[in-house]
Amino acid sequence: MVGSKTPCALVVMGVSGSGKSTIADHLAGRLGWRYEDGDRFHPPGNVAKMSAGHPLTDEDRWPWLQAIADEIDRVCTSGAHVVIACSALKRAYRDVLVHGRDDVRIVFLDGMQDLIAARLAARKGHFMPPGLLASQFGTLERPGSNERPIIVSIDAPVEAIVDDIVSQLNLVPQ
């Protein structure tokens, strides 16, 4: 099988509790790329709203998504590589992040709601309360084939998930 072009950015997406930060961090380490958590691009008002148990509106999300897209552009223009953890639940959100680039790939962490709910219940010190999980699944638009997503099940150990992503990337050796 022929390898594919190395992307400059991978956006690891999924609902809260799907393991985005953990998988993206491990994937970045495996690839030797920089890791960024998309949560750090949220304006303070978004964090306060989510911490209070209120879901974000699309109007809340646009500046956050644009800040991440700007970072992707900056990294790609510099010739570097980045793995970014970002929920990117709707196609319109992913369109902002990718904005037509063929060197940005989406990695979808796919999992069942009951498994993710159990993970959220065990998690401490995160601003996303478990009660918002249903709204996340309600908002989720699974990536379509025309988005060229890498889809992996989260029902495996971290290293196996990362192995699956790297295998699906099928990168040409540099």
Results as ranks from 00 to 15, higher is better:
W64H: 01
S21L: 09
I68N: 01
Q66N: 13
D58A: 13
K49Q: 15
E59N: 08
I23E: 01
A69G: 09
P55N: 12
W64F: 03
E36D: 14
L65F: 04
G38N: 13
N46S: 13
K20M: 11
R61T: 11
M50T: 14
M50P: 03
P55G: 10
W64Y: 03
D73C: 04
D25I: 00
V75R: 11
P43S: 12
Y35L: 06
W33E: 09
W64D: 01
Y35G: 02
D60G: 05
L27E: 07
D70I: 07
A48W: 00
E36C: 11
G19L: 08
W62R: 13
I72M: 09
A48K: 10
H54M: 08
H26K: 13
R40F: 02
G19H: 10
D58K: 08
D60F: 08
A69T: 04
A24T: 09
D39R: 13
G53W: 10
G38Q: 10
T57S: 15
D58L: 07
T22H: 01
A28R: 02
G45Q: 13
S51H: 03
D60R: 05
I72H: 06
H42S: 14
S51N: 06
F41H: 14
P55C: 13
K49A: 03
D70W: 06
E59L: 07
V75K: 06
L65T: 02
H54E: 14
D73W: 02
A24K: 02
G19Q: 07
D58Y: 12
P43W: 05
I68W: 02
